[in-house]
Design a binder for these strands. Structure first.
Lengths: 235, 235
DNA sequence: TAGCGTAATGTTGGATCCAATCAACGGCCG
DNA sequence: CGGCCGTTGATTGGATCCAACATTACGCTA
């Protein structure tokens, strides 16, 4: 039936590193814009002119159009018919929205994952915690945090659930920058991370999920406070 | 500040019914394909040739391309570079995946919504229950079920959470057809629906969420049994 | 005859061109 | 003087054309 059930080989890694990083121009544009938006280089409300982007990225308008459509489906840009695309705005309400989604998805993923986590996966998560301890750059910090969380959820199966989780975890990066800038990155709830990992190692899914929920609630409150302070200062 | 804070008028309804239903050809193609996939008219694995679709729908290939990209982001079709798009396959694993997502999102939405539900919204939900009692058509049934669930979640705020919930509730329609066909529609847990509504009316969010979770678990088991039986029969 | 390499074909990805729509500006009428 | 309407400019949506890629079939060679 299956002539090559396991095509993974050293050649794949070689090909992945050697070949151009993106298969199509559309993928390139999408990845570039996505990173720029998530890293805050394109603030909310920025109009995205197709022709300008095409010129700047060295492609024609068409891959830009398709990329914008995909980003629209991810709620990163807002496309109005015949009026163009703008980067989606960030706000306290949107941050709360995102947290409600993460608060629903991530504990579910964690509960499903813990019974099937391997020791290697837990070790990887632990390594990511220690990497976070010494990472000075906030951008890398967000990436490591994302990788740590996803490493804990990796054994959940359910690829769609995991993809959704990762997408919204990444979407949160737009707010993480504010968060870290506001309250200093050193207290990024590393003890929560360690406690979650320990509970996971003991197979205590419910306990780990409870820590995660508190972790997320705490982060949500910090973001809400930051927005409240910013609006008070701006007003 | 706001020159027209409430632009709703009889003219809007008129315009909505008179004008062509879709603003752009892309929207038309996307809606058409989405409905066809969710209703089961396009089974999993069906290849979607751009030129053929364009001809059949009376548009050029370009709106088809953009629509396929949007459907890809919704996991309804799978697009492989230079190899075209196929309708995403359904499977027991994917159904379980979808249920894990619904099981995470919907109780969260319900908990957030119940404290803010108005009596009018509850009445609407009740009307949808009675409408389901007398609906013979399975397709309409799925629509009513979706509307009932969303009516209960409507007061949750958090537009992104609601949009995600609705999207995955709609995605489940592909399996609902199987479900209803297999075990007869009359027992579609109408008592669960009524119990949820009553708990919501009493403001008991936790109780309503518990009923919803059991409701979803039960549906998930039914689908799993159906798939197991089908595979046993096919083998 | 089996396997590899090559050519042919069909499909998609990308570029360019044209049409439709929206926003802004300016003139006209009340 | 203010509001409405037509016109202009800019931008997007859609159509057509060309190039690149993947699959298939064929032929050659061992």
């Amino acid at each position: 039936m299956k002539p090559a059930p396991d095509p993974v080989s050293p050649l794949d890694a070689l090909a992945a590193s050697a070949a151009p990083r993106w298969r199509t121009a559309t993928e390139f544009v999408e990845a570039t814009l996505k990173a720029a938006i998530l890293e805050g280089r394109l603030p909310g409300g920025t109009p995205l002119r197709q022709e300008e982007l095409a010129e700047r990225l060295g492609v024609s308008r068409m891959p830009v159009r398709e990329a914008l459509r995909q980003l629209e489906a991810q709620a990163l840009v807002e496309v109005l018919p015949h009026r163009g695309a703008v980067v989606a705005e960030i706000s306290a309400a949107d941050a709360a929205d995102l947290f409600a989604i993460r608060r629903a998805l991530e504990p579910a993923a964690l509960r499903l994952s813990i019974p099937h986590l391997t020791e290697a996966q837990r070790d990887q998560a632990g390594a990511l915690i220690t990497a976070m301890d010494v990472e000075p750059d906030p951008g890398r910090m967000g990436l490591l945090n994302r990788q740590f969380h996803m490493a804990l959820y990796a054994a959940a199966g359910h690829p769609r659930l995991l993809a959704l989780t990762e997408q919204h975890l990444a979407a949160f990066d737009r707010y993480l920058r504010f968060h870290l800038a506001a309250q200093g990155r050193e207290r990024m709830a590393q003890q929560d991370h360690r406690a979650m990992l320990e509970a996971a190692a003991r197979g205590e899914a419910a306990a780990a999920a409870a820590i995660l929920e508190a972790h997320l609630d705490q982060a949500a409150e910090a973001i809400a406070r930051f927005f409240a302070a910013r609006e008070a200062g701006a007003a």
